[in-house]
Amino acid sequence: MDEPVKLCVSNQKGGVGKTTIAINVAGALNARGHDVLFVDLDPQGNATENLGLMEAYDDEPPTLFDCLTEAEKRDEIENIVREHPEMDVVPSNIDMTAAEPELTLARRSGEQLDLVLREIEATYDYVIVDCPPNLGNLMDNALFATQNVLIPALAESTSKRAFELLFDHVDALEYDYEIDIRDRAVVVNRIDVRKKQAREMVEWINAAFEDVPVWEIRERADVQKALDAGVSLLEFNPDCDMCETFLEIAANLDEQFGLTEADA
């Protein structure tokens, strides 16, 4: 494959389990035999920590921050990639907290991640970008670089407003850069089927996204235990029933992009 599938996991609303979904979708793609690059673009570094790479968060330069903000250091990204049993990882770093204002000053502020990924993406089948939980330059970089979005959400009414804000932002970015950003899936996370509001919200999301696959992830203690262990749920407990859902998400992505397990 000449170019990998690039997908960002994005919702500017915090607390929706964005990083959890990103790691487990990446793990499921790996389980289907794909080579996956995981990019932690969130300055908080949650994915970096949840993949057992917290020491990288305090690394000295050059880091992802330098690659994004200094054109002459883009090729340093090769030295930043860390190995993980399930995927390669571009870790976040404490310096990323200064990325927003630095990117504002850049001549092509929304294109820097795309330019950085070109240095290393050719060896991967998928690039998964975990976005920060807010709209801004880093989110713009993720959307521009991938132009494919997987949206995590909670089964609660606040998700409606979060969808509106995200889509307004995507529309503006598409107009500014003359690109087409596609929704590839919605993953409703941490569903408690005992709650009436949760059931009603799942119904609303399914109706609102008629042309987009909607997946349901229910509360399971092993999901958090896997993150604490630094791996995906599929690596931690392949017998958990939610593993099947993540594998279905991965299989559907393969179908959307014309890939199969044999392509990996």
Rank of each mutant, 00 (worst) to 15 (best):
D2Y: 10
K6P: 04
C8N: 03
V9C: 11
Q12G: 05
G17A: 05
K18N: 02
K18A: 04
V25I: 15
A26W: 01
N30D: 11
G33F: 06
G33D: 10
H34C: 11
V36R: 07
F38R: 09
F38N: 06
V39S: 04
N46F: 08
A47T: 01
N50H: 12
L53E: 11
D58G: 09
D59P: 01
E60C: 07
F65P: 00
K73A: 15
E78R: 15
E78W: 06
N79F: 12
I80L: 00
R82F: 08
H84N: 05
M87C: 11
V89R: 05
P91T: 10
E100V: 02
P101A: 04
L103Y: 07
L103R: 05
T104Y: 04
T104S: 12
G110F: 01
E111Q: 15
L113F: 09
L113W: 02
D114F: 12
I120G: 01
E121H: 08
A122R: 14
T123F: 03
Y124G: 03
D125Y: 06
Y126A: 05
Y126M: 11
Y126I: 05
V127E: 11
V129P: 00
D130S: 08
P132N: 10
P133A: 11
N134R: 08
N137Q: 12
D140E: 13
F144S: 03
A145H: 09
S157I: 14
S157R: 14
T158S: 14
S159K: 06
K160H: 08
A162S: 15
L165Y: 08
F167H: 13
F167D: 13
V170E: 01
L173R: 06
D176F: 05
D183E: 14
R184G: 02
A185M: 06
V187P: 01
N189Q: 03
R194Y: 13
K196N: 14
A198R: 02
W204P: 01
I205L: 15
N206M: 10
A207T: 14
A208S: 15
A208W: 02
P213K: 12
P213E: 09
E216W: 09
V223C: 10
V231N: 01
P238K: 13
F246C: 02
L253I: 14
E255H: 11
G258N: 11
T260A: 11
